[in-house]
Deep mutational scan, measured.
Amino acid sequence: TSEDEWQCTECKKFNSPSKRYCFRCWALRKD
């Protein structure tokens, strides 16, 4: 669900929880 998505701190895109990197800008997920 969208509620589980995380928001990239670099480009603000919301990504799948299973992705460690942002799909748009490839920044590593910040915990």
Results as ranks from 00 to 15, higher is better:
E3A: 05
R20N: 15
Q7R: 04
N15V: 10
R29P: 11
A27D: 07
R20D: 10
W26A: 15
E5K: 06
Y21R: 14
W6S: 07
Y21A: 14
A27W: 02
T9L: 04
W26F: 11
F14S: 06
L28G: 10
C25R: 00
E5P: 07
E10H: 13
R29E: 09
K13Y: 03
R20G: 13
Y21I: 12
D4M: 15
P17Y: 08
D31R: 05
T1V: 10
W26L: 13
C11A: 02
W6C: 06
C11N: 02
C22K: 00
P17E: 13
T9N: 04
C11V: 00
S18W: 02
R20F: 14
K12R: 08
S18I: 02
K12D: 06
A27R: 06
Q7Y: 03
C25D: 03
Y21G: 10
W26Y: 13
F23T: 10
S2I: 13
R24L: 10
C25M: 00
F23H: 13
C22P: 02
K12L: 03
K19R: 13
K30F: 08
E3L: 04
S16R: 03
S2R: 10
F14I: 11
C22G: 01
Y21T: 12
W6M: 04
P17K: 02
W6H: 07
Q7V: 03
Y21D: 13
K30M: 13
A27T: 09
K19A: 14
R29S: 06
K30C: 03
D31E: 11
Q7H: 02
C22D: 01
C8P: 00
L28V: 14
D31K: 01
W26R: 15
K19I: 07
T1Y: 01
F14N: 08
S2A: 08
A27F: 02
E5Q: 10
A27L: 03
Q7K: 13
C11I: 00
R20A: 15
C22W: 00
W6E: 02
D4T: 10
C22E: 00
D4N: 12
K12I: 04
S16D: 13
W6N: 13
K30N: 09
K12T: 12
S18N: 05
K19M: 03
E3C: 06
Y21L: 10
N15W: 07
S16K: 05
N15G: 06
E5R: 06
C11L: 00
S18M: 05
P17I: 01
S2K: 15
P17T: 04
C22T: 00
F14W: 09
K13N: 09
C11G: 01
Q7P: 02
A27C: 03
Q7M: 14
K19N: 12
K30D: 14
F23I: 12
T9R: 04
C25G: 00
F23E: 15
L28H: 03
D31Y: 02
Q7T: 02
S16L: 08
L28M: 02
R24E: 15
S18H: 13
C8I: 02
C22R: 01
R24K: 08
R24S: 14
W26D: 15
N15L: 07
F14Y: 14
K30H: 07
F14D: 04
K30P: 14
C8A: 01
E10M: 14
A27M: 04
C25W: 00
C8R: 01
R20P: 14
E5Y: 09
N15H: 10
S16H: 13
A27I: 03
D31S: 08
E3V: 05
R29W: 07
T1D: 05
Y21S: 12
S2V: 06
E5F: 09
K19F: 03
K12Y: 03
K19W: 05
E10C: 09
L28Y: 03
K30I: 09
N15T: 11
R29Q: 10
C25H: 05
S16C: 07
W6V: 06
A27E: 02
T9Y: 07
T1P: 01
K19V: 08
D4G: 05
R24I: 02
L28F: 10
K12E: 15
Y21H: 12
W6L: 09
S18R: 05
T9C: 03
R24W: 14
C11Y: 00
R29D: 12
A27K: 08
R29T: 09
E5G: 09
R24F: 11
E3W: 01
C22F: 02
R29F: 04
E3I: 08
Q7D: 03
